[in-house]
C-alpha cells in the first residue's frame, strides 16, 4: 500500500513545511516515508511544490508523476498539477485564491478557502496548516490523531505555548472545513 500527495503553491505559502509535517506523521505511524521537494530557482518566489509518499514497504521511485492526491494553493499550480491527479484521486483546491475547478470528471474535488479561514483567525501566514488539517481530514493518509501529536511535538516548545495554540487553531479549522463542510464546496 502506497499513498501520495503533492502540495503545490507559491514559494512562501509554507508548502514544504506542510509536507514535512505530514511525512513526520507517516513516520510516527511506523510507515516508510519520503518527502521530495522542488528545488533551485523554483524556490525563489515562484511555484513551490513537494511530494510526500507514505507506504508500508520500501519506497521505490521518488518521482510520482500521477499522485493519488494533489492540493493546489494557487492558480498556476491547478493548471500544472490538476491534470496529473491519478483517476479516482482527490484534488483539493485553495478556493480563496482559485475561483475555478478542474474540468476533470474522473477525480474528486474539494474546495477549502485556506486564506479566508486563516485570516478569520488572524493567522494569515498559516494557510499551510489549514490546508494540512483539511487534507488529513479529507484523505486520512495519516490519522488525525497522529497528525495532531506531530503538531504538538513540532510546535509545543517550552515557553512558546501561544505558537502551538495558534497552530492548533488553524489546523482544526481546516479539519472542520472538510468534516463539517464549513466553507467547503464540493461539486
Amino acid at each position: 500500500m502506497q499513498r501520495e500527495v503533492t502540495f503545490a503553491g507559491f514559494g512562501g505559502q509554507g508548502i514544504m513545511t506542510a509536507g514535512k509535517l505530514l511525512a513526520l506523521a507517516g513516520m510516527a505511524e511506523g510507515k516508510e516515508v519520503a518527502w521530495i521537494p522542488s528545488y533551485g530557482p523554483e524556490m525563489r518566489g515562484g511555484t513551490a511544490y513537494c511530494t510526500v509518499v507514505i507506504a508500508d514497504r520500501l519506497i521505490g521511485s521518488p518521482i510520482v508523476n500521477d499522485p493519488e492526491n494533489v492540493f493546489v494553493f494557487n492558480r498556476p499550480s491547478l493548471d500544472k498539477f490538476g491534470p496529473r491527479v491519478r483517476p479516482g484521486g482527490v484534488l483539493l483546491i485553495n478556493s480563496s485564491l482559485i475561483d475555478v475547478l478542474s474540468e476533470r470528471k474522473d477525480i474528486e474535488q474539494t474546495c477549502v478557502p485556506c486564506n479566508d479561514i486563516a485570516n478569520a483567525l488572524k493567522n494569515g501566514r498559516s494557510i499551510n496548516l489549514v490546508g494540512l488539517g483539511a487534507f488529513v481530514a479529507r484523505t486520512t493518509m495519516v490519522s488525525l490523531e497522529t497528525q495532531r501529536a506531530v503538531l504538538h511535538k513540532e510546535f509545543g516548545k517550552k515557553g512558546k505555548e501561544s505558537v502551538l495554540q495558534a497552530a492548533t487553531e488553524v489546523f482544526e479549522a481546516g479539519v472542520r472545513a472538510v468534516l463539517e463542510g464549513q466553507g467547503a464546496k464540493t461539486p
Binding site: K20, A23, M27, E32, V33, A34, W35, I36, P37, Y39, I59, P62, I63
Partner: peptide, 10 residues
C-alpha cells in the same frame, strides 16, 4: 544525485 541530496527520508 540531486534528488538524494534534496529529499527527506527517515
Amino acid at each position: 544525485d540531486g534528488l538524494i541530496g534534496q529529499m527527506m527520508e527517515p
